[in-house]
Design a protein around this nucleic acid. Structure first.
Lengths: 194, 194, 194, 194
DNA sequence: CAATAAACGAGACGGTACGTCCCGTCTTCAG
DNA sequence: CTGAAGACGGGACGTACCGTCTCGTTTATTG
């Protein structure tokens, strides 16, 4: 019976938020500025989002493709390499990187936010990698006796550590070196097979 | 020629800050509350620290022993294990962990802060591990052909990833598993030598 | 198109200001206390008044009847006496007197405030007296050859001098003596007419 | 045995105060700026004066000759005219005028200050005028039947009113007109005697 | 197709904390 | 011991945003 939600306003709010999120921490987002940029009343924001956290999360993840497409060429090493390079590419794109680090930062002081962030981003990425690795296990390209989750921690840990500390670039070379370093450990011993 | 800085006030300010820092993000520290707790005028805080960042950094690092003592028993594996366990212990102590994640979060929106954090904490830890590993290289307990810095990224990456995402506890078991997973890769191949 | 100004808050602010103004100088008004007493955010005050001056002026003059009713019985001496007594009564009422001296004091260090005060209070009173005297001139009850403005200066000068220096009470007796002293000078010489 | 008070510092403090007093209200004097200008420690000021009031009073009155010299030529009208002109001259000199209005303003919110101001300035001037008028009474140049104090109120009232309201200049012409207006009232009726 | 009821833009409101200014007191050292 | 220097605890300043609350306007049904 009533006027329906304006998807236009909705979009403008998310756009304004994303824009600001590339430059500032979530907690330093200024709702009044978002409203002004989006030409929206403040109430319209509070109507649909509980606070900066929710808003930032939605704005940020709208820009990161929700589902990670994992190739499955049958060659686990190649697929893994491809995944690592794509991940590096995603993260090093400045705006995405800045935004993700902003989310991770926000999560440190806000347990609910962290929970949300894990479900909607971190676990999705872990899941993708896990699927990939399980494929390798099935085809016998990977050893059976290593802790898969710990391995995933190592991979994403290295990525996040570099991203958060700006220690070194997240480029293809890094992805390659990482694979080179870790591969021998997870790869099935071909020679033993031979 | 004037009255000297009050070391007492200085200490009270840092103590109040540490206390609050265990519960809140750096950017949500309330200077007025710090001043009130420390029974200090706000100006005394602004006189000596440029803002919440500087204050939080000093308060946090005052509680983390600046120098990491690295044992050198001659047995690199044992020393490494010991280092990893001590590190895990430091980080999982609630107050320290919370504080460090707060610093890392703050660093994400504040490049100068990050720079400072790297110099005063991250690089100190990296340096300790680097020294330890170089010892192993000298004594031939470690292979020569691996990228030392990348290895350090992997180690600290795993720690920070777990701490920041609260994915799993940073306990001695984690330290043990981590070593078990990574050791084969860096250890010199004794059997090959044999 | 937005929510309209709250006349309630407006009134509470003026009331709180008036209250404080009876006891303190304009420059010593504490905006924070006004806000607290009026149960109002400070910003609401700053939104509508530029500072203590404007606020005090409005609060003070709201309590002083803007227009002075000047009687016109046809008997100039009687009207003048009545005006002088009413003026004395107004000023010696403690709260009004304190408030007006506070405004006059403020005006000394603030030219714009003085200008405003003259227009909104001093000139209104002068105007009333001027009208009264001109009536007397028309009906021939007053001499034509005296400087009307100088006379007005003398009258109000005496009032303000006594009020500001607390030299003596501003009572009806004072008003009577003042008239008695000044009347002969402005009155038309009836005997000459006779 | 002790170092004596530095009359130099004392003078520099008063000088700095006078300087600032020409531009600002007493309550807006900034002790820290006075100390800086006078190259003096704040404590040295607090040591010798209780606050801005006392300091301003001393600084201001040091610049106004304490004793008013009243001429006595034997001609009361001439002496009165001379007194009025000298008074006008004193007050219209910008720095003195500003300073005196600042004192009068301060007195409005500070009873002790008012008391002091009356004793040290207002009553001195009243006394001078009173002496002058009594001389005229003795020599029969003035009527006996008028209220001397009320007359003094009228004179000083007119001066202060003009000065405080900046209504019109305090020039010699004003002094002349004032005398012309008031003289007939206080002068003995010579013609009646004749 | 008018009435109606939610969604909207605007922005005023009560409030919290900010970083600054200055207060009056204190603590040091130089002369 | 006086006096310059200036650190200290404290209080108010005027500003920036917060999240809530009215307003009048717009707009897609529903009666």
């Amino acid at each position: 019976m009533a006027r329906p939600r304006s998807s236009d306003a909705h979009a403008r709010i998310l756009a304004a938020t994303s824009e600001l999120l590339e430059q500032t921490a979530v907690s330093e987002l200024c709702i009044e500025e978002i409203a002004a940029r989006a030409k929206v009343g403040k109430q319209t924001i509070y109507k649909w989002w509980a606070g900066k956290g929710e808003l930032a999360m939605e704005a940020a993840l709208a820009n990161v493709e929700a589902h990670v497409h994992v190739e499955d060429t049958g060659d686990t090493r190649r697929d893994l390499q491809s995944f690592l390079k794509k991940s590096a590419r995603l993260l090093r794109e400045t705006s995405t990187g800045r935004t993700l680090t902003a989310l991770m930062a926000q999560a440190q002081g806000d347990p609910e936010f962290l929970e949300d962030f894990r479900e909607r981003f971190l676990e999705v990425r872990r899941g993708a990698l896990r699927t990939l690795l399980r494929g390798g296990l099935k085809t016998g390209q990977l050893r059976r006796d290593f802790d898969l989750e710990l391995f995933i921690d190592l991979v994403f840990g290295a990525y996040w550590y570099r991203m958060l500390t700006r220690r070194a670039p997240l480029d293809d070379r890094f992805a390659a070196e990482l694979l080179e370093m870790l591969w021998p450990f997870v790869a099935a011993r071909k020679k033993a097979a031979a």
